Simulated scan of single mutants.
Amino acid sequence: MRICLITPEPDHPLLAAAAGLLRAAGHGVDSLDPGAGAGLPAQASPADAYLLKSRTPQALALARELERRGAPVVNSAAATALCQDRTAMAELAARAGLPFAATRTHDSLGVWAASGDPLPGGPVVVKSRHSRRHDLVARVDDAARLRELAVRWPQEPVVVQDFAPNSGWDHKLWAVGGRVFAALRRSELSPQGRGATLPLALAELPHGWEELVRRIGDVFALDVYGVDVIDTGDGAPLVVDVNAFPGIRGQDGAAESLAGLALARAAAHRG
């Protein structure tokens, strides 16, 4: 089988480990960097499966072209793009009845901050509508803090979620081909910063959370994804974000699961 990685970072620990396993088993692995102008020549023979570990417009365009030609791409371009739009994400989750944080959208942070009384109900979490590296994620307790953010991000489309009291720790949950992994990490809203990611056994998750992660994969049509969940008390989950193809660092078995998923998709395509 020949597997291709769509990424500018083929040496990412998860990808590198999975590629090593595939090569050791006699399979071919190469990569395409869409940001460097890499594309698929019109007459080139496609790989048996592609792993889309990039969310740039160039990467999504390449993935769509591969799908048009009939090649399997994990995750699909459509599923990856949906997870970049936090408004669309929240709308889909609500339609599916998932315990997702209620989300409101404003086209411009600056315009919203300048309107009347934008914070009538207490603290909120403000995020960039479009998920990307170094995007905006901040807790806002008062109008002064909101105006401060608006100075830095005046034109930014944002989503707003009511702040849910919690322990200050995020449950970082991931799935690769149906296998779930878990860890704890301090919230990025914490004054102490995120700190280290702490491993968490699945048996330590509240009842039903593992099944919730798998259901999210079905709803969002994802095979490799991350789910950020906070415990709002007595094990009640609140989903605050879904990510397509996150890094999943330091999780034993993740590389094996990714390699197995790639081969399964390649075999299904050949079959």
Score class of each variant (00 low, 15 high):
120 P>K: 10
36 A>Q: 13
62 L>W: 08
245 F>A: 08
174 W>L: 13
232 T>F: 03
7 T>G: 03
204 E>Y: 02
137 V>C: 13
236 A>F: 01
243 N>E: 08
157 P>N: 07
238 L>K: 08
146 L>S: 12
18 A>N: 00
63 A>G: 07
61 A>K: 13
174 W>A: 13
89 M>C: 15
95 R>Y: 11
110 G>A: 10
129 R>N: 06
169 W>I: 06
224 V>S: 01
178 G>L: 04
131 S>V: 08
252 D>C: 10
229 V>R: 02
163 F>A: 10
246 P>M: 10
109 L>V: 05
224 V>A: 06
66 L>E: 08
108 S>R: 07
26 G>L: 06
195 G>N: 06
246 P>K: 01
189 L>C: 01
59 A>D: 13
14 L>T: 04
172 K>S: 00
18 A>T: 00
65 E>Y: 14
241 D>P: 01
141 D>G: 06
202 L>V: 11
121 G>C: 14
257 S>H: 12
98 L>F: 08
60 L>V: 00
254 A>R: 04
57 P>A: 11
210 E>I: 07
158 V>N: 04
235 G>E: 07
42 A>M: 12
123 P>V: 01
111 V>F: 08
65 E>V: 11
164 A>V: 08
116 G>A: 13
217 G>R: 04
126 V>L: 12
240 V>N: 01
203 A>L: 15
16 A>C: 07
2 R>V: 01
148 E>P: 11
169 W>S: 13
70 G>M: 05
31 S>M: 09
152 R>D: 12
5 L>D: 10
135 D>G: 04
20 G>D: 10
29 V>Y: 03
161 Q>W: 06
141 D>K: 10
181 F>H: 00
